[in-house]
């Protein structure tokens, strides 16, 4: 069954230039114990989608519509207090830069204990014991000593493990991870990815893994959602999407990943740049950069089935069911 269902999510920002819709009708779902990769360029709306799920959008931003169902409960309809009780307990989040995420002036233990006690009325001692166990789960050596450490005394990879351990404290159904390995060394990145895969399998926690790095996500995710200019343009099982992209944008992204490319030949690029939210082309938002675009693309693209459990938002998909 689905741990998280996002339906037609719309998030907009009210600016002087008008209302900008950063997330425009995004829908996806994640099963228990599975990892969904949410892929896109900077500004595609993938991080805003993540913040919207937790209700962490701050003014001038607001959620304009849609539903975020967690075990059948719509998070968007909850009152602020009820939503606060869900955050951290049922759905948690991990951020990109582990140095900025942890409070520099508090020990790891006191921050984690605070997170425990935000939801469970337990003693400080019991909270620290739970924090220690959570650190052990994410593979931190001598966790009891790490509780006494300040963030600056830990390496980047260690800090990110602490952040993941904090997210795991209440065994949430879903963890949203916003580019959590982007700031880390490649070797550390590999370790964390392996750890996350193991956690998803063992604890049944569902992950929404937000990233711009297709090479990383292709080895980790079960399913992929490719976002472009606030919309999901392609959705499906990761292996199928990587092997045979249906949307020209996905194909362009995959072609420009260096590690998936033949050495010695120039790296293909997608021409042009992502449109700004204030000046989106009518119809297909990718058409200005697309080699397959024609007159039909000035109309909104239809959702086309592109294989088993696959969907693509395109007039001229590369693959059709």
């Amino acid at each position: 069954m689905s741990a998280l269902v996002v339906e037609n999510l719309q998030t907009e920002f009210v600016t002087r230039a008008g209302t900008l819709r950063a997330v425009d009708g995004v829908s996806f779902s994640v099963e228990k114990g599975r990892i969904l990769g949410l892929v896109g360029e900077s500004g595609s709306g993938k991080s805003v989608t993540g913040y919207s799920i937790l209700g962490l959008i701050e003014p001038p931003g607001r959620i304009a519509g849609g539903r975020v169902l967690l075990d059948g409960v719509d998070l968007i309809a909850l009152k602020p207090g009820e939503l606060r009780r869900m955050r951290g307990a049922r759905v948690a989040m991990v951020f990109q830069d582990p140095m900025m995420t942890l409070n520099p002036v508090l020990t790891v233990g006191s921050q984690m204990a605070m997170a425990v006690r935000a939801h469970d009325k337990v003693s400080q001692r019991a909270a620290l014991a739970r924090a220690r166990d959570a650190l052990a789960v994410v593979g931190i050596p001598s966790p009891a000593e790490r509780l006494e450490a300040y963030p600056h005394q830990l390496s980047g990879g260690m800090r990110q493990r602490v952040a993941i351990a904090t997210a795991l404290l209440h065994r949430p159904a879903v963890i949203i991870a916003d580019e959590p390995t982007t700031a880390l060394d490649v070797s550390i990145q590999g370790q964390i990815l392996a750890e996350v895969r193991r956690l998803a399998d063992e604890t049944g926690t569902a992950f929404v893994w937000i990233t711009h790095d297709l090479a990383v996500i292709s080895s980790l995710a079960d399913d992929l959602c490719v976002m472009y200019a606030g919309r999901v343009v392609e959705r499906g099982p990761a292996a199928a999407v990587i092997a045979e992209p249906a949307h020209p944008y996905t194909a362009g992204l995959l072609a420009s990943v260096p590690s998936l490319h033949e050495p010695g030949t120039p790296l293909p690029q997608i021409p042009g740049s992502a449109p700004s939210l204030g000046r989106l082309p009518a119809g297909c938002r990718f058409r200005d950069r697309c080699t397959r675009a024609d007159a039909a693309c000035t109309a909104d693209p239809p959702a086309v089935a592109a294989g088993f459990d696959r969907e693509v938002l395109c007039h001229h998909p590369l693959v059709r069911a």
């Binding site: 606060r84 955050r87 935000a118």
Partner: peptide, 15 residues
């Protein structure tokens, strides 16, 4: 970011 992270853990504004 650490404030956002603390909020994501369900801490109230006072805390």
């Amino acid at each position: 970011d650490y404030v956002r992270f603390a909020r994501a853990q369900g801490l109230g504004d006072g805390e």
